[in-house]
Write a protein that binds this DNA or RNA. Structure first.
Length: 432
RNA sequence: GGGUCGGUGCCCGAGUGGCCAAAGGGAGCGGACUGUAAAUCCGCCGGCAUCGCCUACGUAGGUUCAAAUCCUACCCGGCCCA
């Protein structure tokens, strides 16, 4: 791409992906994006030590804009994180103390960095913390410089505020003020960074537009707002949680690449196409082709696999994605014989694994005690039952009552994969 | 405080002296089917050294050859009266 040139197809590409929920004047925006690079920002409040899957969509929006030649700013909400955004919330947030906030920022900032390119010569990304321009502002200054330009009527009319005002618990003055802080951020970035556009989830619309008002009144300028659809599952719940209700963290420490990969593998068929379009950087045509192939043979789960692979690569690394995919193949039906030792090691970290003394290999009737020791069964009775029902297999070989674990059952001299039924997998790790 | 009904296995719930480890349902588990989906069907579903023993029906005692079932006290819950 030539210096200063922008990809003219960005807006139509975003539309094709279903990434645009709402914008200020679409024609003005289209014209502005054609005219040249624009600076655009998204704010992320550090409410935890890691971002989660729900943050991917806006994060990737910044990436898409950067890839199209624009300048992205990731804003870490060191200040707003202290107050708490009432949008989309039915109850008051608990306030974070300084130490927690600092820890959260320390976790989130590197994640924000990882999605954007800070070295690109023409349009490097920027990472800013709104605390920098907020912490020194006195309350009186804020009331005079920001509060004066906004009417309470205007604020109370926003959905996010109105919903809470009508709820039985009400809304604190602190959270009520959140949108002023966010509006002020936008204004500050407009003045100091030439930032003309803010993006966010559709629940952010009110807050973003308030920022535009502030820019108009205080600076006589104009900017743009773009909101993305809030990702929701077919059952209406928000994205970012697994089927079992765990948050899908982007941090490997909080959710291993394997489990992250698995969570996407379990995507509903009906969601595959949309998620490929909205959450991957694959070209629209490629997404559509994968989705069409998936529709023809949904049982192969190729759509889910591709989605899981892309996202795990993006969030963790291509190597982590490949490892997770190999481990998944073993857990879900693939043959375990001949699997690389690295894959077995990865599995051992993901499935319940028990270290067993090598000496039991020489013992008679060792299977039941081993199963108990490994926590695969709760009692001898359960072990007998399962064996009688052919519910246990060692390295994919069904075993029956009276079977033994022997040297021949060891993979790479150490590992033995135990299956209980089809869904539960455990690893036996024999010491050296 | 008085009266009354009730507390049963993971949950709901039947059982009112022996045939009760305790009906039935749900959940769970295994098998068949299958797509790491849903539905369906079959089996299992307290523990153990498995034709027997142990533990268990709010808690602690008692009556009895024998109690989840009867008696006493206590604890907890519902409802009614105060």
């Amino acid at each position: 791409m030539a210096r200063g040139a922008v990809d003219p197809t960005l807006l139509t590409d975003l539309e094709a992906r279903g990434l645009i929920h709402d914008t200020t004047s679409r024609s003005d925006l289209a014209a502005r994006l054609q005219a040249g690079p624009i600076t655009v920002y998204v704010g992320f409040d550090p409410t935890a030590t890691s971002l989660h899957a729900g943050n991917l969509l806006p994060l990737l929006m910044l990436r898409r804009f950067q890839d199209a030649g624009h300048r992205p700013i990731a804003l870490a909400g060191g200040a707003t994180g202290m107050v708490g955004d009432p949008s989309g919330r039915s109850d008051e947030r608990s306030l974070l103390d300084d130490a927690t906030l600092a820890a959260n920022l320390a976790g989130v900032v590197p994640q924000l960095r990882q999605f954007l390119d800070f070295e690109r010569p023409d349009n490097p990304a920027k990472l800013l913390d709104n605390r920098a321009w907020t912490v020194g502002v006195s309350y009186l200054e804020f009331l005079r410089d920001v509060g004066k330009h906004v009417t309470v009527n205007q604020m109370a009319a926003k959905d996010s505020i109105r919903n809470r005002m009508e709820s039985e618990h009400g809304i604190s003055y602190t959270e009520f003020s959140y949108m002023l802080l966010q509006a002020h951020d936008f204004y500050w970035l407009f003045e100091n960074e030439g930032c003309e556009m803010q993006m966010g989830g559709s629940d952010q619309w009110g807050n973003i537009v308030l920022g535009l008002d502030l820019i108009r009144r205080k600076a006589g300028g104009s900017g743009f707002a773009l909101t993305v659809p809030l990702l929701t599952k077919p059952d209406g719940s928000k994205y970012g949680k697994t089927a079992s209700g765990d948050t899908m963290w982007l941090s490997a420490a909080k959710m291993s690449p394997y489990r992250f990969f698995q969570a996407w593998m379990q995507t509903d068929d009906a969601e595959v196409r949309r998620l490929l379009l909205q959450l991957t950087l694959l070209p629209v045509g490629t997404c559509e082709a994968i989705a069409a192939a998936h529709l023809d043979a949904p049982h192969l789960r190729d759509g889910q696999r591709r989605l899981a692979r892309e996202l795990t690569s993006l969030v963790h690394s291509p190597a982590a994605a490949a490892g997770a995919e190999a481990a998944s193949a073993v857990v879900f039906g693939g043959p375990v014989a001949g699997v690389a030792i690295e894959t077995l090691r990865m599995l051992a970290a993901e499935v319940p694994t028990t270290v067993i003394s090598r000496s039991v290999l020489a013992e008679e009737n060792n299977l039941v005690p081993v199963l108990r020791h490994a926590g695969i069964v709760a009692s001898n009775g359960e072990a007998q039952r399962l064996l009688a029902q052919h519910g246990i297999s060692l390295n994919d070989e069904k075993v029956s009552a009276g079977a033994q674990v022997t040297r021949d059952d060891l993979l790479h001299e150490r590992f033995c994969l135990v299956r209980k039924g089809k869904k539960q997998v455990a690893m036996l790790l024999f010491d050296q």
